[in-house]
Design a protein around this nucleic acid. Structure first.
Length: 206
DNA sequence: CTAATGATGAACT
DNA sequence: GTTCATCATTAGG
């Protein structure tokens, strides 16, 4: 496994193992959805840095009716057809946004939805943004974590190797991964493309 | 359980 | 251009 070492500066400087583009591009989407579990998502805004361990993901594949890109490229789904490793953020139900990482072969239209994080850094800022002080309620859902992390549709197309948006290497025992069906979809509802960390309190549901 | 809330895309004229 | 069903959700009761 190859990682690039990036120097990231905050009030005190530190060295992080940032996942590079190769990480997002070398796995198929179902594998990447599992490899991302345990990694830490980091976002930096003018208000500060927030970070959380990825504990729940879903895979959306090109030949999968539940995938936004299933019927082909449209203005909304254009990011999904780029090379893997950029963000796809879209509006859902008129009021919430969801964050995906584009995956798979270029021009196929696949992505991994990030569904839940275990808060790690910037928890006060997350609480302020989410208007709650309940740790477990901060990032336990795709729209919740987007709010807590201070992300929005302006992050659409943003490479996951930016100064302000990236993932850090994680460590994970494969036996800790639970595989189930995805949440909130009607098409292809039987496909087992959801993954989460066993016994983790921060998943959106068990 | 259900309302809130609006963009998206497809199917029409 | 207009209409309309759909929607990878959440908070509140």
């Amino acid at each position: 496994m190859r990682f690039c070492i990036a120097l990231i500066w905050k009030s005190t400087s530190r060295i992080l193992k940032m996942l590079d583009l190769d990480f997002y591009q070398k796995y198929d989407t179902l594998t990447l959805a599992q490899k991302l579990l345990g990694c830490t998502l980091v976002h930096r805004t003018k208000d500060g840095l927030t970070a959380g361990k990825i504990v729940e993901t879903e895979a959306y594949l090109y030949n999968d009716p539940a995938c936004h890109a299933f019927k082909g490229k449209t203005p909304r789904t254009a990011p999904m057809f780029e090379a893997a490793g950029i963000a796809y953020v879209y509006l859902i139900y008129g009021m919430y946004e969801c964050f995906n990482i584009v995956s798979g072969e270029k021009n196929r239209g696949e992505a991994v939805l990030i569904r839940a994080l275990e808060p790690r850094e910037g928890i006060d800022l997350m609480m302020e943004r989410r208007k709650t002080n309940q740790l477990r309620n901060l990032c336990s859902g795709p729209a919740k974590l987007v709010l807590a992390m201070g992300m929005n549709r302006s992050n659409n197309f943003q490479p996951m190797v930016s100064e302000t948006l990236y993932c850090e290497e994680g460590e994970l025992n494969k036996s800790e991964i639970i595989q189930t069906t995805r949440i909130g979809i009607t098409q292809a509802a039987n496909l087992p493309y959801r993954f989460y960390l066993k016994d983790n309190r921060f998943v959106s549901r068990v």
